[in-house]
Lab assay of single mutants.
Amino acid sequence: MPSETPQAEVGPTGCPHRSGPHSAKGSLEKGSPEDKEAKEPLWIRPDAPSRCTWQLGRPASESPHHHTAPAKSPKILPDILKKIGDTPMVRINKIGKKFGLKCELLAKCEFFNAGGSVKDRISLRMIEDAERDGTLKPGDTIIEPTSGNTGIGLALAAAVRGYRCIIVMPEKMSSEKVDVLRALGAEIVRTPTNARFDSPESHVGVAWRLKNEIPNSHILDQYRNASNPLAHYDTTADEILQQCDGKLDMLVASVGTGGTITGIARKLKEKCPGCRIIGVDPEGSILAEPEELNQTEQTTYEVEGIGYDFIPTVLDRTVVDKWFKSNDEEAFTFARMLIAQEGLLCGGSAGSTVAVAVKAAQELQEGQRCVVILPDSVRNYMTKFLSDRWMLQKGFLKEEDLTEKKPWWWHLRVQELGLSAPLTVLPTITCGHTIEILREKGFDQAPVVDEAGVILGMVTLGNMLSSLLAGKVQPSDQVGKVIYKQFKQIRLTDTLGRLSHILEMDHFALVV
Rank of each mutant, 00 (worst) to 15 (best):
A265Q: 07
R266P: 03
G57R: 08
A158V: 05
S174L: 01
L230E: 08
V10I: 13
L184K: 01
L106V: 11
M169D: 02
T53G: 05
V180Y: 02
T260I: 11
R161E: 04
A8D: 09
K271E: 15
A69D: 10
D221Y: 14
D120C: 05
K119V: 00
M173A: 04
A158W: 01
A253K: 05
S3A: 11
G31N: 12
K269W: 05
G116D: 07
I95W: 00
S63L: 02
P229H: 01
S61K: 08
G20A: 14
T68N: 15
T53M: 04
A157H: 04
L220H: 00
N113A: 05
S117P: 04
E131A: 12
K108D: 05
G139C: 09
Q243R: 09
G11I: 02
F197Q: 07
A8C: 03
E29F: 13
T236I: 14
N225A: 07
L156N: 00
D245P: 09
R58N: 09
I214W: 04
T87V: 06
R18H: 15
V178K: 06
F112P: 05
D245R: 02
T150A: 02
K247D: 01
W208N: 12
V189P: 07
K97S: 14
S61I: 06
Y223V: 00
A226Q: 09
S123F: 05
L241W: 12
G185Y: 01
Y223P: 00
N113L: 05
L251G: 02
T141W: 09
G153P: 03
K108N: 02
T191D: 04
V206P: 03
D86P: 10
E176T: 01
G153I: 03
K97T: 05
L42H: 09
K177H: 01
K137Y: 08
T236H: 06
S63Y: 04
L210C: 06
G263W: 01
V118K: 06
R196I: 10
I122M: 07
E171V: 13
S50Y: 07
G134A: 10
E187P: 09
I95K: 00
F111C: 01
G162H: 06
V180P: 03
H67Y: 01
F111W: 01
A159N: 13
A226P: 10
P78E: 07
P41Y: 09
Q55L: 10
D221L: 04
K211V: 13
